[in-house]
Amino acid sequence: MKVVIDADLCQGQGRCFSIAPNVFGFDDLGNGVVLGDGTLTSETLKLAQLAMANCPEHAIFIEDDE
């Protein structure tokens, strides 16, 4: 499982990196970025899902492995 942020949808609401600071960071404009390659463990998956459920812009997606 991998998490991605759609940069066109992200407006820097700031919810993801406060809920899951191990999964998300921010750039110099305050927009959310995925740390590393976004691969999720069973632990970080839950946090990523919580961040997704709190993103007002619906900019976070969790993708199944191919």
Binding site: Q11, G12, Q13, L50, A53, N54, C55, E57
Partner: peptide, 13 residues
């Protein structure tokens, strides 16, 4: 789960 929009939505967040 709290997808509130207190800070607005879209480009004028």
């Amino acid at each position: 789960e709290n997808r509130h929009v207190a800070f607005g939505l879209g480009i004028h967040r």
